[in-house]
Design a binder for these strands. Structure first.
Lengths: 211, 211, 211, 211
DNA sequence: AATGAATGAGGATTCATTCAT
DNA sequence: AATGAATGAATCCTCATTCAT
């Protein structure tokens, strides 16, 4: 955290190269197994530089995480600032499309997130997960509440569980785009997009107001 | 994989002790970070024995995985062999309850599974994940197909997507019981059970046949 | 401290070789500058073994220290169990001779002690120094007290300061045998022995009972 | 040693700041463990500057040492230029008081000296120690010789050994003011001053001319 | 003259694995 | 079959030193 300035003063190209190499390491191998040796080789920099820039491995991870979160935020903003005059189910479809585009563009970032979820010994994990949640999940909640206010969802809908289900579906949907195992062999790559309307169909019947 | 026999000839108590210690290591620290040093200390056996029994770390992991999968299968059998004369939604509720009981009883096994999901450099990951899928997911599919045959679900339901959604929900539901972060603060420990009917409510409306 | 057994089970010759190599490193370079790399090369063992035996560098240091202290204790016992029926000044001369013989035999042990004295960041320094003091200095105190009881020293002698002076002289005397700088160029190696009676002369006049 | 001029042209305040920071590092951690990184941070200068000023770590140490020696010399001069018309034992008491005041004012300088004494791998150690000796010890010798000429000390006194004893006592006395361990628990901080007369008492009886 | 980014050798330490007993 | 001592590669990290700006 101290010498963060050193890194920030670097030319943009080099910064990106380093972030990319580090992201690859962490996303592919997980925090512990990620090797700074491999990382610096990929990035083409000296090993010592990493520690000058980020202090230690933990600092590097935090930087990579922050860098990735920034990308996520940009993406979220796109969805949020969309021509919002549509009903919630149309928006959910939009979100799924946008999310899919995101994981296709930045598959490693999504992998980093799943690493974080399942690896208990990552430093600051609690803090980092909290930041993600604050960033991403509040959004869905607002979406649901506004839809409720507009009468787009049925009165009897249990909000918390609906929220949980939406998150689960979205998360798994994105995960499937990164890890083909989860698609059950049914969803192979390109087909994920075409399944979106079907998901929306189920959600609409399950959550929408009748009529 | 080589001298598996040697391990199998061990007294049951010792086998269980070793498996338990190894499961703890792998589930808590992940594959790479797991230390055979720590493991043998917990198990109270000689380090050399591990390599005599399982060949190498990878073999040990495979054995732990197989051992855990066996427990999962037992559990699945319980659900499958249940008094099956109920509709699919009642059964889904049963499954959620049973799953929750399972992760409460064997939280480490579920963690092992999530580790496997998110850590790409575990050897044989593909093979192991395939085995899980074959074990667990075929079951849900059959459930859906039978329900369709009985007319419990609407004709227009897109089966693949419904299956995917069910898996996503179940998985996330169990994960939340192990990792409190995912509950969004809404679900705190005991509350997970009470939310099951609400999930079923959504699913029934989304997937069930009208009337 | 844990795997101390491993080291103790080693053949005596190997144990001694390792202790000697470690003592050389620590005594010559100080705790921080001592390199385990150099040490294992001198001892002809694998680097990993050091950590198996002693846990970490600190544990190694503690072991070397304990080993050395054992040698010191043996030496002290020799002096203590001497034909004790002589006056204190004769005994002081004996002690100086014995001490000199000790530093000549184990110069590194004495250097280790001085390293400990002057290096503030050695782990457990307080504890180790206390152990030395308990071992060595109580002895001088008893000597003085018995001499007082026998009337060998004057009533007006300030005991604490006399003790301090004796320690200072003994310590410096031994130090000079190890570090020639302190001898002021006057005492070159062999001459230290011949100066003992002269020191005793001063001490006797300063501390002895008149006549 | 190369561009010493560059450093000397610096504003006095900056020079002092740098010397102080370096002295702290060396005195507290010893030569090897002292980190130029820490040092420059404390001093608030660029790391490169150290090497521009002093060539390398060794040169920096030599400069710090010289700077400290200068302070010692000033102090010595005070004692030397004292109203000298007193006998040697009064002067020794003065010296002890002055020395104590010095180590209280500049404890780091004394620590630097003890580091130098006990750490054999400091470069130029021989040279530096010789300079100290030349500075400090000649003085005591003169004192003794003049006292002998004035008949303040007995004819039979072995001069070299007396000198050695005085040095040992003074050194240990000062050391005890910096490292409390050596006081044996008897001398706690403030008490050192009050013990001076008692030391002088012993010395006078041991070395003074009878009557 | 001053800066501070870059470097890589070397530090302690951990660990899976081998093998003689 | 079981042990646990031995090994050395790989880990993160620190540091003095260099050099372009």
């Amino acid at each position: 955290m101290i010498a963060k300035t050193t890194f920030n003063r670097l030319p943009e190209e080099k910064k990106e190269r380093i972030m990319q190499a580090a992201l690859m390491e962490f996303a592919e191998k997980g925090y512990r197994a990620a090797s700074i040796n491999c990382m610096v080789e990929k990035a083409g920099i000296a090993k010592g530089s990493v520690f000058q820039y980020f202090g230690d491995k933990e600092g590097l991870f935090a930087a990579v995480f922050a860098h990735s979160l920034e990308k996520v935020k940009e993406e979220l903003r796109k969805v949020r600032d969309n021509p919002a005059r549509t009903d919630i189910f149309t928006r959910l479809a939009q979100i799924m499309h946008t999310g899919l585009a995101f994981t296709r563009t930045y598959p490693l970032i999504y992998r980093l997130y799943t690493q974080l979820l399942s690896t208990p010994d990552i430093p600051c994990r609690d803090f980092l997960l909290t930041r993600i949640r604050d960033e991403g999940k509040v959004f869905l909640k607002e979406l649901l509440e506004k839809a409720a206010a507009r009468g787009e969802i049925r009165d009897s809908l249990p909000i918390q569980e609906a929220l949980f289900l939406l998150e689960a579906l979205l998360d798994r949907f994105l995960l499937a785009s990164v890890l083909p195992y989860l698609g059950n062999g049914f969803f192979d790559g390109q087909n994920l997009e075409s399944s979106i309307p079907h998901f929306i169909d189920i959600l609409e019947k399950g959550m929408g107001s009748s009529r």
